[in-house]
Computed example of a mutant assay.
Amino acid sequence: MYQGQLTTMAPEVLPKPQMRGLLARRLRNHMAVAFMLSLGVAALYKFCVADQRKKAYADFYRNYDVTKDFEEMRKAGIFQSVK
């Protein structure tokens, strides 16, 4: 390198960053991801929580007897106006 020649190393040219429309492009991508994520969470909630809760209520009221429950509460003295 030092034999009488001077070599210059040219710096690599970096591409110019995109500034115009950057927010709109990133916002569009983030909105698409947020929409898909919210649909996934809503479906997960429906199948894991809401359907299980509906099934539990249906199982409870399938064998529920209102008069029998009322009589048990009356005998226990919960109601003051009913003897």
Rank of each mutant, 00 (worst) to 15 (best):
M1D: 14
M1Q: 05
Y2A: 12
Y2W: 05
Y2G: 10
G4S: 10
Q5R: 13
Q5W: 06
Q5M: 09
L6H: 08
T7E: 05
T7W: 01
T8N: 11
M9Y: 13
A10S: 09
P11T: 05
V13A: 04
L14W: 13
P15S: 00
K16T: 12
P17I: 05
P17A: 00
P17Q: 03
M19L: 09
G21D: 10
G21W: 08
L22S: 03
A24G: 02
A24C: 03
R25I: 12
R26D: 10
L27H: 07
R28I: 09
R28V: 08
N29A: 15
N29E: 15
H30I: 15
M31R: 13
V33I: 11
M36T: 15
M36G: 15
S38K: 06
L39S: 15
L39I: 14
G40H: 00
G40Y: 00
V41C: 04
V41Q: 04
V41W: 01
A42M: 09
A42C: 14
K46M: 11
K46R: 09
K46Y: 13
F47Q: 13
F47D: 15
C48S: 12
A50G: 07
A50C: 07
A50W: 11
D51I: 08
D51T: 14
R53S: 06
K54W: 04
K55S: 15
K55T: 14
A56F: 06
Y57I: 15
Y57V: 15
D59Q: 09
V66Q: 05
K68W: 00
D69Q: 01
E71A: 08
E72M: 04
E72S: 10
E72R: 07
M73C: 11
R74E: 04
A76Q: 03
I78P: 01
F79Q: 02
F79A: 02
Q80V: 12
S81F: 02
V82N: 01
V82Y: 02
K83S: 10
K83G: 09
